[in-house]
Design a protein around this nucleic acid. Structure first.
Length: 579
RNA sequence: CGGGAUGUAGCGCAGUUUGGCUAGCGCGCUUGCCUUGGGAGCAAGAGGCCGGGGGUUCAAAUCCCUCCAUCCCGACCA
């Protein structure tokens, strides 16, 4: 490529941003496709990527925003190792619990190590050694670093990689009240961070899952491709929002006022699903007791929900307090109920724990499987006909149901989880023995919280949320560059000179600018500019030279401004401020 | 980890059914001419262990065996 321009800052001719017309076949979601096509990432192995220069610039900006907010909230940055000795994980008990997601390796002496998927063990061990007095608390420590998870199924490009960059902060407090303060600091810092990144997001209540602990919120970037479903209150004054896994049902205990009728068995040949039974017997799905069998480490349990509801396996798992939970296989169902799948019911089930959703106990004269082939029982009444061992909320809440906080209607959306704040309590400090002495010299366990932000995932989420058919539309705060300057005809030296002049002025004024000095036709440069997603584009054609005005175009809206030469910098700044 | 599919040039694909190939096409890349406001045109080129290994055959991208990788569908997670 001929060098046409004289000076060299960031010129398209030297920038490694290899754009592609077509996306690789394996890229199924838009952020993955666009990041590959626009020359941001290249795949190395499943779920492992090269981050090209454009990506590095975006990541650095996101990280900078995170650093500023973490520091403002009192956080101190440190860096912990990726390679962690197995002993730490054995001490916490997670060497066995974490399972195949933990990348494991051995050194030359055959000693076990793990690639850190998270750093609770390491940091707790560090603090245990270095903190001994209440005077040293609270303490907020964070790092921004690579994490490793050997995902069952890496996919979606940067959204679910096996190697990714994460900011993780850990808080150490004297007590629960201190933790509450740290937690709120982080919650507010996260709100600022995602706002500054230009994202539309929502903090939602979430399940605490395998990390163990109590309160937790997830920060969800709203996007149709999101893997998580969230429910939020339709009332704008109400802030309730929750992951569907967590969302609590509003239960009105209204038992129908019907005479209890005697049990009776009905033939229901081949009627297995709620829909079939409901149609066949001409009754509403709400009057059916759906019985789902699960297996866990203790044996088989029966989960009961109303026919129009779905079991929430997370709630069920938590209610049972078990480690694992799997839908029972065909054979297990036959053995446990004596009937094929589709005819299980609570009446006469022996030796199986029955856990029912709140709504089930309110049913009168309901229908349930008969535990024999091709039959259901009608007029089933909980309490009279079977005993519920555990009665609690174990069902999915759906859009349209009342908000637990204000009673308005709930709405549903999809979200990409980019951050999580979590109250760990004493889970790790206790097991690893991280204690401090209080004013009285009494030894107490440190109370912890952990707070993560997926940095690479945030970048991908930004693309999911900000793109059109032509390419990426970066929010200005995290864009790799602010503007691109495109001289239309690189053989016209007056255009080239003018482009150079503006380029130099913008750079010295601190506006991050790429000069597309390639000897390509204008169309090619326009396409690449749209694809890469520079927030602003400055086009310099023959008219610009003749009329001393350049064209500034806003990527997001397509708006064009004709700007006199001496005002380019101020107009660019003004436009950027609004993006 | 189960079930399904695919591996051919940097990317997207054809060829495999029915062995005959000296392996093609589009984009991209190189050189020249031409063109210069939305991925132009012409011409000449470069680029392949047809995923690896083993077999069958006169002959294998093509048939068989076996690994490996990738993708899609099903209970995790930032």
């Amino acid at each position: 490529m001929k060098k046409i321009f004289r000076r060299s800052f960031m010129r398209a001719t030297s920038l490694l941003a290899p754009t592609l017309r077509e996306a690789p076949a394996e890229a199924e979601i838009i952020s993955h496709q666009l990041l590959v096509r626009a020359g941001f990432i290249r795949r190395v192995a499943a779920g492992v990527y090269n981050y090209l220069p454009l990506t590095m610039r975006v990541l650095k900006k996101i990280e900078q925003i995170i650093r500023e907010e973490m520091d403002a909230a009192g956080g101190q940055e440190l860096l912990m190792p990726i390679i962690q000795p197995a002993e730490l994980w054995q001490d916490s008990g997670r060497w066995n619990v974490y399972g195949p997601e933990l990348f494991r390796l051995k050194d030359r002496h055959d000693r076990d190590f793990a690639l850190g998927p998270t750093h609770e063990e390491i940091i707790t061990s560090l603090v245990k050694g270095e903190v001994s007095s209440y005077k040293q608390l609270p303490l907020l420590l964070y790092q921004i670093q690579n994490k490793y998870r050997d995902e069952r199924r890496p996919r979606f490009g940067l959204l679910r990689g096996r190697e990714f960059i994460m900011k993780d902060l850990y808080s150490f407090d004297r007590d629960q009240e201190g933790l509450d303060v740290s937690y709120m600091k982080m919650y507010h810092a996260y709100t600022k961070i995602f706002k500054r990144c230009g994202l539309t997001f929502r903090p939602v209540e979430a399940d605490s899952g395998a990390i163990g602990g109590s309160d937790t919120h997830e920060f969800m970037v709203l996007a149709d491709s999101g893997e998580a479903a969230v429910l939020f209150c339709g009332n704008e004054d109400c802030e309730y929002a929750a992951n569907v896994e967590k969302a609590a049902q509003v239960f009105k205990n209204e038992k129908e006022k019907e005479e209890l009728k005697p049990l009776s068995v009905k033939e229901t040949p081949n009627m297995r699903t709620v829909e079939q039974v409901s149609t066949f017997l001409n009754i509403k799905p709400q009057k059916i007791i759906k019985t789902i069998l699960y297996e866990n480490e203790h044996g088989v349990v029966a989960a009961l929900v109303r026919g129009d509801r779905e079991v929430n396996e997370i709630k069920l798992l938590n209610a049972l307090g078990c480690l694992r939970l799997d839908l029972a296989g065909e054979n297990t169902v036959k053995k446990a109920t004596g009937a094929a799948v589709g005819f299980a019911g609570p009446v006469g089930l022996k030796g199986i724990k029955i856990i029912a959703d709140l709504e089930v106990a309110a049913l009168v004269n309901a229908v349930a499987g008969a535990n024999k082939g091709d039959a259901h029982i009608i007029n089933v009444n909980p309490g009279r006909d079977f005993t519920i061992d555990l009665l609690t909320d174990i069902r999915m809440v759906q859009a349209g149901e009342p908000c637990p906080s204000c009673g308005s209607e709930l709405k549903e959306a999809r979200g990409i989880e980019v951050g999580q704040v979590f109250k760990l309590g004493d889970k790790y400090s206790k097991i690893l023995g991280a204690t401090y002495s209080d004013e009285n010299g009494t030894s107490k366990t440190i109370i912890m919280g952990c707070y993560g932000i997926g940095v690479t995932r945030t970048m991908a989420a930004a693309v999911e949320q900000n793109h059109d058919q032509d390419g990426i539309i970066w929010p200005a705060s995290i864009a790799p560059f602010h503007t691109v300057i495109i001289p239309v005809n690189t053989r016209d030296s007056s255009q080239v000179d003018l482009a150079e002049e503006i380029y130099g002025r913008l750079w010295s004024g601190g506006v991050e600018t790429v000069l597309d000095d390639r000897a390509e036709r204008a169309g090619v440069k326009f396409k690449d500019a749209d694809l890469i997603g520079y927030p602003l584009r400055i086009t310099i054609g023959s008219k610009a030279v003749a009329e001393k005005q350049v064209e500034v175009r806003v990527r997001k809206t397509g708006e064009m401004y004709l700007v006199p030469l001496d005002q380019v910098e101020s107009v660019v700044r003004e436009l950027l401020g609004k993006l």
